[in-house]
Design a binder for these strands. Structure first.
Lengths: 235, 235
DNA sequence: TAAATAGTGTCTCTTAGACAATATTAT
DNA sequence: ATAATATTGTCTAAGAGACACTATTTA
């Protein structure tokens, strides 16, 4: 806290809840928006799937805890991550009072550790957002909110490229947007809007795979990303 | 949390941080945007001002804790309140690890208890946002972020009326917006935008005070507010 | 040369901003 | 009548959506 109204303080006079971070990890895999889930082995919700998370250690910040969870599950660091919301209903965990600070992360598929090696041998799996299993705790609510936020952000920022490799083509980026938003977009309007944002630049190179005409490869400008980050709603 | 990655659980194996809620309480008083602060009496930051807040009790939700703090400080219930962000740097409180879930509330000045009677005798005072004292903890950062969010929301929603009494005139509403945004707005464009949102309705009555032509009194439509609430970014 | 994919321009409609005159009341 | 405040409409510029054809490559 900060102050106990009358500014008295005695930690032992209050029971303390547990605090965890849960990280909703999104990626585009096999042409679908997928989320990484962990299978629970014990009560409560044994056998059900859950968003990866864990306790916040006493000496680490919330962001550090979320980044640590992400790295443990995917081996990935330095990807887009933002705080989503804090969920704290008293009965959301049947064991004890647990307040969780939820984050969501966007991870390019090519950056993920091959065998999804968690530090321990917990079973993890990527699930399509449109085909989720039954979820433990209030995690269905958290996932639903994370998707809503991701879709919302796609409409007014250009975070989509955070799910792609460093170099990508505009058709690839548009495809990513269409997968997440669940609707087709007009090529010309999409290109106009994205390029007008000024955060992409051509590499001068082409991607020549597949049958048709090769596509130009783009990257995002580091400076421009700073601009976008400054305008984020959530610090 | 939810799961400890490997789904083992033993609460005693982890130290637990304290969890508090801090509530940034905004109101329009004496023609200024003001925020309610509490003077600290003890170490740390004795004598400095802080955002009102307190521990989350084991049996209450975060929202309930925030609403309780708000009621204790202002006597007000059932006003606009939303979760702002969760701040958890390990050293934000020199006493122990304290994670705070920050909320912000919009309170109509006419609804506030006259003598600002907190349940205890802590000294509280309304400070203009443009003339803040030195603040305890990371509360300057929290206030700054709360103002940013309020200004942002004013631009794409019509939350401004949450700071006004049930009945209000369009010039009063515009004045509230100008105070918060810190800039003059065009009367005609403002009225067009607000009325186009469809969330206000005329009462048929007039406010006849002061010298000039009386102004029409409006209220907000309950149904319309539900619509706006459904479109909120934060659940 | 056929098939596949990448890339481009215009028109329209809506929205937001700039801008000034009239209407209604109290004094 | 004068002062004070409330109310109203138009023009313009910019942004968003609808829409179809040309360009470049591989097989």
């Amino acid at each position: 806290m900060s102050n106990d109204t009358a500014a008295t303080y005695d930690p032992s006079q209050y029971d303390r809840p547990s605090v965890t971070v849960d990280v909703v990890i999104f990626s585009l895999i096999d042409d679908r928006l997928k989320v990484l889930l962990v299978r629970r082995k014990q009560w409560p919700f044994a056998g059900m799937w859950a968003i990866p998370g864990g306790f916040v250690r006493m000496e680490e910040s919330l962001e550090a805890a979320a980044a640590r969870e992400l790295a443990e599950e995917t081996g990935v660091r330095d990807v887009y991550m933002e705080q989503l919301y804090t969920f704290g209903d008293p009965d959301r965990d049947p064991r004890t009072r647990v307040i969780t600070v939820a984050y969501f992360a966007l991870v390019p598929a090519n950056a993920i550790d091959p065998p999804q090696a968690g530090s321990d041998a917990a079973e993890t799996r990527w699930f399509p957002m449109r085909d989720l299993p039954e979820l433990a705790f209030d995690h269905a609510q958290i996932l639903s909110y994370a998707l809503e936020r991701l879709q919302y952000k796609l409409e007014y920022t250009v975070v989509g490229f955070e799910l792609l490799p460093d170099l990508f083509t505009l058709p690839e980026l548009q495809h990513a947007y269409e997968l997440i938003l669940g609707e087709a977009l007009d090529k010309r309007n999409f290109r106009r809007k994205i390029l007008a944002s000024g955060i992409l630049e051509e590499t001068g190179e082409m991607r020549r795979e597949g049958e048709g005409r090769p596509a130009r490869l783009y990257r995002y400008k580091e400076n421009a990303v700073v601009e976008v980050k400054a305008r984020r709603l959530f610090p």
